[in-house]
Simulated scan of single mutants.
Amino acid sequence: MLITRIFPLISFVAIIGFSGCSTNVDGHNPSSSVYAELGGSKKIEEIVENFVVEIERDPVILAYFDGADINRFIDKLSEQICHRTGGPCEYSGDTMEQVHGGMNITEADFNRTVDLLINAMNKADVPHPLQNKVLRVLAPTRDEMLYL
């Protein structure tokens, strides 16, 4: 079962921390960011862990992850959320087009995945107004993922 493979990977990611995070040298002020409102990397880590469990429980969305490197997914999604919410991380992964090319993700499945992310944030006790801020900063990736 995937869960038995995922939880050790999540623990590994939690131990090594956010490898893409560094001190902020570009003058960006994370104290006034969505990242800061979330509470930083610990909350992002919790959201990503919850999201992986949500994906595992959804056979439609889980099919998109067949053969995926779950450890890399966890690491890069954490980096991306950290970066896009104004945290001190740089996203070092492939473009959304590169990652999702050939998947032919439908709008319905994209929306279903957003619902899983919302479930993950609910389980992490992220207040709804803050969830909306997170979704707002992630929304631009939508067109980079659909029907490729």
Rank of each mutant, 00 (worst) to 15 (best):
K123I: 01
G17L: 07
F110H: 04
R136S: 07
N71C: 06
N122D: 14
L130F: 02
P129R: 02
S19Q: 06
V13T: 04
S32Y: 09
A68Q: 09
L116E: 00
E79L: 07
F18P: 00
R72Y: 12
K76F: 11
I47W: 02
P88T: 04
N132L: 11
H100Y: 03
D143A: 06
E45L: 13
H83C: 10
Y147G: 07
I74S: 01
I16F: 10
N24Q: 05
Y147C: 07
L9S: 04
S33Y: 00
K123M: 04
T4Y: 10
V137P: 08
S41K: 06
V134D: 00
C89A: 14
V114H: 10
F7Y: 09
G20N: 08
I70E: 01
K133P: 07
N122C: 03
S32T: 15
V60W: 03
M96C: 06
H100Q: 06
D125G: 00
D94Y: 13
I16C: 03
E49A: 15
E56Y: 11
N50A: 07
I16V: 14
M145K: 14
G20Q: 03
N122P: 01
E54W: 08
M96H: 15
V48D: 01
V34A: 08
M103N: 02
V99K: 13
D66N: 10
P140I: 12
K43M: 15
I81C: 05
V99R: 02
E90Y: 14
N132Q: 15
F18I: 01
C21M: 10
H128A: 09
N122G: 01
G101C: 12
T113D: 05
V60N: 11
D94R: 15
A120S: 08
L77N: 08
I6L: 12
